[in-house]
Write a protein that binds this DNA or RNA. Sequence first.
DNA 1: GGCTGGCCCTGTACGC
DNA 2: TGCGTACAGGGCCAGC
Length: 282
Amino acid sequence: MRRPRRRDARYGRSVPELPEVETVRRGLAPWLDGRVVTDAWGDPSPKFVAASELIDHALGAVHRRGKYLLVDASHDGRPRELVIHLGMTGQLGADLDPDGPHTRAWWRMDDGTTLVFRDVRQFGRVSVVDAGDHAGLPTLAALGPEPFDPAFTGAALHRALAASRLRVKTHLLSQRPVAGVGNIYADEALWRAGVNPAARRVGPARAEALRDAIVDVLALGIANGGTTLRDYRGVDGSAGRNQSTLDCYGRTGQACNRCGDTLRHRVLDGRGTTWCPTCQSH
DNA sequence: GGCTGGCCCTGTACGC
DNA sequence: TGCGTACAGGGCCAGC
């Protein structure tokens, strides 16, 4: 008989969520803005092959929308956009090996530097589109408000959650109520707000608390340079520091930092979920 | 139109 | 020691 596998932080992967992508964006922006791509390569897979379309494009500002990186580009006056999703194991950097086994794309700049996209598990994606044309990226096209946008209020979150019968955590991960929340920060925010991840209805007061918790955990993540449990690295190769602040994610079997009860784990709509049965009873 | 579940993909941990 | 299997999960898509 198989023993149940331990579920602790050693098994977690640090998936790039909003704080990690924002940290990458801040590293890329001063480097890429004003550069011209002189050569490029993309893995033949449909997920990455578009990378080579960026040859001879001038690059501009680097934006972030949810977990997507958007790099302004132009060619012969035609405004275009490089869209990168890091997936689960995607890394961008200048110090990565362009010939490495998990390199999926690279772009050589006119100053001799090379931006490399490494993605071991190939859940990431690279697209080159006309600026603002996100029709081929349905999740990006349907993203909810940015969490730091003034429009993202408790009332707005309550309305969004009330419009669906999805479990609250599943709904958050869909990116529709708010952009950028992934598994780690969803668990953390729900724990902070005392909301059961399996709940299908969240009242106005709890939605307000959840909104505040989402903003707080994401802001803390950004301030700490992201969460690194295994894969995530910033553009300069440095690890994030946010993992030491986690109260819930990856702490299955440990005592809740608020009530002392034992944190539990379950699979919710296919996603591993850690929660406190006492603090998050409903 | 909304929801559910399966698929993609590979490194790692663990059982045998 | 080595092999086989389960597991991690964001986004997409088919089916209901």
